[in-house]
Simulated scan of single mutants.
Amino acid sequence: METIKSNLGKGGLLLAAMGIMSIILSFFNYNIRLLSWVDAWGNTMGWVIRILLIVGGGALFLFFGNALEVDVDVDEQ
């Protein structure tokens, strides 16, 4: 189970990074090849998709980025 959470966290970080890179590159009329479809629906929708990538990826990284689960044994006396 730990590996799945770790991979979700890494995937979220990758999505957020791609969204940020896409925003930066869009100012220079470039885009990441994987995200070239973003501007197919227009400029406004392209920005919405980029922002959703950052927010969604950040949320995945926030919730699943720390894959350490601590089991605490409490001794009852």
Results as ranks from 00 to 15, higher is better:
Gly42His: 01
Val74Glu: 14
Trp41Val: 07
Gln77Phe: 13
Met18Thr: 09
Gly12Pro: 04
Gly9Ile: 00
Glu76Ser: 09
Ile20Met: 05
Leu34Ser: 07
Val48Trp: 02
Leu62Asp: 08
Val38Asn: 14
Leu14Val: 06
Ala59Ser: 12
Leu68Gly: 10
Val48Ala: 05
Leu60Cys: 12
Thr3Asn: 10
Gly11Leu: 11
Val72Arg: 15
Leu35Ile: 05
Val48Leu: 05
Leu15Asp: 07
Asp75Lys: 15
Ser26Asn: 11
Asn29Met: 08
Ile4Val: 09
Ser36Tyr: 00
Leu14Lys: 11
Ile49Phe: 04
Ile4Glu: 10
Leu60Glu: 11
Gly46Pro: 00
Tyr30Arg: 02
Val38Met: 13
Phe61Gln: 13
Ile51His: 10
Ala59Glu: 12
Leu14Thr: 08
Arg50Thr: 01
Trp47Cys: 10
Val74Cys: 04
Gln77Ile: 11
Ser26Tyr: 02
Leu14Gly: 03
Gly65Glu: 04
Gly65Trp: 01
Leu68Asp: 09
Gly12Trp: 13
Leu68Cys: 07
Ile32Lys: 10
Phe63Glu: 14
Phe27Met: 04
Ile20Asn: 01
Asp75Met: 11
Leu53Trp: 08
Leu13Val: 05
Asp73Cys: 06
Asn66Val: 05
Leu13Lys: 12
Ser26Ala: 10
Leu35Glu: 00
Met45Ser: 09
Thr3Trp: 09
Ser6Thr: 12
Gly65Asp: 03
Gly11Asn: 08
Gly9Asp: 03
Trp47Thr: 05
Asn29Ser: 14
Phe63Pro: 03
Met45Leu: 10
Leu34Trp: 08
Ser6Glu: 13
Gly65His: 01
Ile54Asn: 03
Leu14Ala: 12
Leu35Gly: 02
Leu34Pro: 01
Gly42Ile: 02
Gly12Val: 07
Ile49Arg: 05
Arg33Asn: 06
Ile32Val: 07
Met1Val: 05
Asn29Arg: 14
Val72Thr: 10
Ser36Gln: 10
Asn43Gly: 06
Gly65Lys: 02
Asn66Ile: 06
Ala17Phe: 04
Glu76Leu: 12
Leu68His: 15
Gly19His: 04
